[in-house]
Every structure is written in structure tokens, then in C-alpha cells.
């Protein structure tokens, strides 16, 4: 009973759908093409504009633009041509390629060493370059100083401190001239003392150096009596040098 009712309900729904289709078809009139678009005026460029466009380089489609070759391009062109000839040539095929491989290997090694900042100067028997300092040291060349006159000037002016300094520098010059030490502005008195040969000379030099240090670095107020002692010590050292030379 229940099954029959379901079938009747399905048939009723189908019937209503079929009845509705012609009604929907009748409600729309048959479509006919209608020209609804308004008139569009075509824009045409002027002759002058067209001529202008035709003359533009980018709009030349018929022929490929020929780039202007620079000197650099010509150089590379020639290099490439030379490489091509070489690599295809008989010399390259008969061992020349190993030269090329070697050149590439050397270039690669050079780049790696440069990146690692390896200093190779010592490999060629030369000492590595010293790292420069950011400042300049202006030294006083003891070989260019007229010591006798400058010492006399300082003595007459009563500037014993300066006289002691000049006297000590003159001693360094004389020791250098005799090859007993090597004068350099960076050396200390202890360095010079270490350079002197054993014997009475280091003792005499040390006495002079000590007086210089007390006068120059210690800035002790010097009297004429002090300066007499300094002159005596310096004379004793020079006497030793004279004796040694004799």
C-alpha cells in the first residue's frame, strides 16, 4: 500500500515537470540577432606619425638590427677566434692542451693564494715585505749633524741638557763610524750596549749612557759641575776608542 503511494507521488511530480517545460518555452520569444553596438569611429594615425613610427629603430622588424661593436667586443671576438683556432688546431691536439691546462691551474692557484693572502715573496729568496705602520717616524740622522758646533752652541747657551744629548749622539756616531755598533733610531741604549764587543768599552759606554738618561729622560737640573762629569766620561770613552784604533 505504502509502495503504491510512493509510485503515484513520483508520477505526479514527473507530470508536473513535463507540463511546465512548454510553458517556459512559450514565455521567451525566438531570439534574433540585433545589431545593438553603436558606431565606433576608427582612429587612424596621421601620416606624419606613421612615418615617425616607421623610422624608429625598435620597430624595424624586417631586418635584424646590427649592434655597434665596441673595441672591447672586437677584442673578445678576436680572442675567441684565436682560442677556437688554437683549440681546434693540430698543436693543441698534439700536447698543446696541456699547456692550456697548466695555465688554468696556475691561474687557479694564484687566485686561491691571493684569497688566502699568502705572502710568497720569501719563496723567491727575498724577505717578506714588512707591514707598514700607519704613521711616519721622522728620525734625526746623526751623520748629518755638525756636532762640534751644535754642542758648543748649547754649552755657551747654558743648555746642558741639550749638550749632554748631542754629546751622547756624537758618541753613537763615532762608535758607528768605527763599525762597533749600528746606529738606528729604533734602538735603545741597552741594544747598543749589547752590540759592543766585550772589554772596557761597554763599561765606559754604560757610564755615558747612564748620564745621558739621567739628563734627558730624568730631566735632572744640570749644573756646570754635572756637565764637567759628563765631558770627562765622554772623553774617557773617546780615549778608549783612540787607543783601540791605535
Amino acid at each position: 500500500m505504502q509502495r503504491r503511494g510512493g509510485v503515484l507521488l513520483l508520477l505526479a511530480m514527473l507530470g508536473s515537470v513535463l507540463a511546465a517545460v512548454p510553458l517556459a518555452a512559450q514565455s521567451v520569444p525566438p531570439s534574433t540577432p540585433v545589431a545593438v553596438a553603436p558606431h565606433v569611429p576608427l582612429r587612424r594615425p596621421t601620416a606624419a606619425h606613421l612615418q615617425d613610427l616607421r623610422s624608429q629603430h625598435e620597430l624595424q622588424y624586417e631586418t635584424d638590427p646590427v649592434p655597434q661593436a665596441s673595441v672591447w667586443d672586437l677584442f673578445w671576438y678576436r680572442v675567441q677566434r684565436w682560442l677556437g683556432r688554437t683549440l681546434n688546431g693540430s698543436v693543441y691536439q698534439h700536447g698543446g692542451r696541456y699547456v692550456v691546462y697548466g695555465a688554468f691551474l696556475v691561474a687557479f692557484a694564484f687566485i686561491v693564494l691571493r684569497l688566502l693572502k699568502v705572502d710568497l715573496t720569501s719563496a723567491f729568496g727575498r724577505n717578506p715585505q714588512r707591514m707598514p705602520l700607519a704613521y711616519t717616524t721622522e728620525g734625526e740622522d746623526i751623520h748629518a749633524v755638525d756636532f762640534p758646533s751644535r754642542i758648543a752652541e748649547a754649552e755657551s747657551a747654558g743648555d746642558y741638557r741639550l749638550a749632554v744629548r748631542l754629546g751622547f749622539l756624537s758618541v753613537l756616531k763615532q762608535l758607528t763610524d768605527r763599525g762597533l755598533l749600528t746606529w738606528r733610531p729604533e734602538k735603545t741604549n741597552a741594544d747598543y750596549l749589547a752590540e759592543l764587543p766585550a772589554g772596557p768599552l761597554p763599561v765606559a759606554f754604560r757610564a755615558v749612557a747612564q748620564q745621558f738618561e739621567y739628563a734627558w729622560y730624568g730631566e735632572l737640573p744640570l749644573t756646570a759641575a754635572h756637565y764637567t762629569l759628563v765631558r770627562e766620561a765622554r772623553a774617557a770613552l773617546l780615549q778608549l776608542l783612540t787607543t783601540r784604533a791605535a
Partner: peptide, 20 residues
């Protein structure tokens, strides 16, 4: 100082110079 020969030691202050 090791640079000086044995027995050649000198006073630390030069003769006639009085330190401050």
C-alpha cells in the same frame, strides 16, 4: 747587566747625579 764583563758593575746612579 749581562752585557758588562764580570766585576764591572757600576753604581745605579752616575757619580755626582742625585736622584729626586
Amino acid at each position: 747587566s749581562p752585557q758588562l764583563p764580570p766585576g764591572a758593575s757600576l753604581p745605579n746612579v752616575p757619580a755626582g747625579f742625585a736622584p729626586r
